[in-house]
Simulated scan of single mutants.
Amino acid sequence: MSQKGFDRRAFLAAASAAVVGGPALAQSVDGAGTVEIERPINHVIRRNISSFRTLDWQPHFSNLTKGAVLVDISSRALHYWEESGQYHLYPCSVPLTEDLTRRGRTQVVLKDPSPDWRPTPSMKQRNPEWPDYVGPGPDNPLGTRAMHLSWQYYRIHGTHDTRKIGRRSSNGCIGLYNEHIEELYGLAQVGTQVLLI
């Protein structure tokens, strides 16, 4: 019994000495969603919480007229630059398989503030048990907002199923958390250029 008490005291004393005598390690989250970690040598390293990397628009677009959306399928991230250059980064869901994935340039052609959903013919063929129509609301797979792209059946939309974000889980569309699609919906406009890579 006394041996256990001694070991406990020794452990607590050693832990206290390490905390008091050792260098401080501080971290904080800034408004950009990154963590700043201060090393004992006062070297600051910035890491994105979600491990997505920020990108520049210039390698992908010639201008930011009407803003620009870049969807990186491999990192499952949607990058948006406002016309002013203000940058936004959102985690997203991407298509389940390569054959459902489309890459290239398109644009926003319609903004739907209360989307309804109908499965495409190929979706219905793969999943005949799916309903033919789902109106706006909590059962709608398009969430609270949708932006139609110039490619038939392709959209950037929300989802009520938050487990899908950050995964290969869609039938071709790009999905965002509802709060993120609502923000993007308010920023983007018809004619916003979109590139999927």
Rank of each mutant, 00 (worst) to 15 (best):
P59N: 08
R76K: 15
S75M: 03
R76Y: 09
S74H: 07
I41V: 05
F52T: 04
N48E: 07
P95A: 02
S75P: 00
S93I: 10
Y90R: 07
S84F: 05
T97I: 04
E83F: 03
S93C: 10
F61D: 04
N42M: 13
S75V: 07
D99Q: 15
R46Y: 06
T97D: 09
H79Y: 15
E83N: 12
C92Y: 02
S84N: 15
K66R: 15
N63K: 02
L96K: 12
Q86C: 01
T65V: 07
H79P: 09
H43L: 14
I45W: 11
R53M: 08
I41E: 15
Q58F: 09
S75F: 00
A68W: 09
W57V: 10
P95T: 04
R46H: 08
N42I: 09
A77S: 08
E98F: 00
T54S: 14
Y80D: 02
L70G: 00
N42A: 15
V94K: 05
W57D: 04
L55H: 11
Y87E: 06
L96I: 07
H79K: 04
Y80R: 04
D99I: 11
L64C: 00
T65F: 11
T97Q: 02
I73Y: 00
D99N: 14
D72H: 10
V94T: 13
R47F: 11
G67P: 04
I49M: 15
S51W: 12
N42C: 10
I41Q: 10
A68F: 02
I49Q: 04
I73N: 07
A68G: 01
D72L: 05
L64P: 02
N42V: 07
S74C: 05
